[in-house]
Design a protein around this nucleic acid. Structure first.
Length: 87
DNA sequence: AGTTTGACGGAGA
DNA sequence: TTCTCCGCCAAAC
């Protein structure tokens, strides 16, 4: 098959992240065959607004919030869940 | 077809 | 700890 549509897999994994916990792009990429940290990040960047995926629980491997326009919102949400963020 | 861009990661300074 | 450089990879120009 020419198209490794692992997006489904990615969505499943993201949806399975327990509240109050976080994971990283690279960690997800390692769980998905054919994906890389870059690919995962790009996939999430294209996520539609209506999706109920807890995308805010995906941060960088160093425990910081990734550089992106929704970074403020993500920080707020994580803070609301009591997640410790390296600042 | 070649270059740039980006919600990354890791090593080195 | 922060910054830079390089590798990776697909989409956009």
């Amino acid at each position: 098959m020419a198209e490794p549509d692992w997006r489904e897999h990615l969505y499943t994994l993201v949806a399975a992240i327990p509240p109050g916990t976080t994971t990283s792009y690279g960690a997800l990429a390692r769980q998905i065959s054919g994906a890389s940290a870059r690919s995962v990040a790009r996939a999430l960047s294209q996520l539609p607004e209506g999706s109920r995926l807890p995308w805010h629980r995906v941060i960088r491997s160093d425990g910081r919030i990734a550089d992106h326009p929704g970074r403020a919102e993500q920080t707020e949400r994580l803070k609301a869940e009591g997640v410790f963020i390296r600042s």
